[in-house]
């Protein structure tokens, strides 16, 4: 009787190893999402100023990260920046740097959009009350902007989690790489392993991203009304 390929997932420590790989994937996503959010808020705030050179730099930064695919950035940092600066960065650090920079650019745009979507009279009322610049942002604009950024931020987080699957291409041992190792080692015992292992990883990503997308849709619907 032919061995069912799905057993390859449960052979030995394979199941546990897949989850260890998933943990790496989650670690990269989590760290980059946190850094991207913090950096993105600063960038978003800086994009509401009227300082022309600052706006131009911000604009170029966003457009460059939007236009050039993330995988290209991973390559540029993994092969190029490490050679240029003569530093030794692991694939993991490169992944975190690239995802943080990319996420920060996108997050900056979300924050800017939220701040600019606030009605002008909020700023004017705040100023009429005699709030200074910082008080205006701290007590009036930011609290209102946060709820408007939340659906977009969660959406960005799902996109970043999905994109972390690319790190396997710069040699990080993530869930995809461990899946490939399992397929290699069980090539003779379970010939159909590749179907089941990739199917399993497919399901894993879905299980992580689906609740987040639902949450984002729900928040958007709730706050649109």
């Amino acid at each position: 009787m032919q061995n069912l390929g799905i057993n390859a997932i449960f052979q030995g420590r394979n199941f546990q190893r897949l989850f260890e790989g998933l943990l790496i994937t989650m670690e990269i996503s989590f760290v980059s999402i946190v850094i991207a959010t913090l950096l993105g808020i600063l960038i978003g705030l800086s994009r509401t100023t009227k300082n022309k050179p600052l706006l131009l730099i911000n604009r170029l930064y966003l457009e460059f990260f939007r236009i050039i695919p993330t995988l290209v950035w991973l390559f540029v940092f993994y092969f190029g920046v490490t050679t240029a600066l003569n530093v030794d960065l692991s694939g993991l650090s490169v992944a975190i740097i690239v995802f943080s920079l990319w996420g920060a650019a996108e997050m900056g745009d979300i924050v800017r959009g939220a701040l600019q979507s606030l009605p002008q009279h909020q700023t004017e009322s705040g100023m009429a009350l005699g709030l200074n610049h910082w008080q205006l942002y701290l007590y009036v604009l930011i609290p209102q902007a946060v709820r408007r950024t939340l659906p977009g931020t969660i959406n960005l987080a799902t996109r970043m989690i999905k994109t972390t699957s690319l790190v396997v291409l710069i040699g990080v041992i993530d869930v995809v790489k461990i899946g490939q190792q399992i397929i290699e080692t069980s090539r003779f015992e379970f010939p159909t392993a590749s179907f089941w292992v990739y199917g399993f990883i497919f399901v894993l990503y879905f299980i992580i991203c689906y609740p987040l997308s639902i949450l984002s849709d729900k928040l958007e619907m709730k706050w649109n009304n």
Binding site: V176, S194, W196, Y198
Partner: peptide, 23 residues
């Protein structure tokens, strides 16, 4: 729509390219 939006393209094409031949 939900399946396609919530899974990475890389895994989708790996599944198609490496998994489907097994079927």
């Amino acid at each position: 729509v939900e399946i396609s939006r919530n899974t990475p393209l890389l895994i989708q094409i790996f599944f198609l390219y490496f998994g489907f031949p097994k079927l």
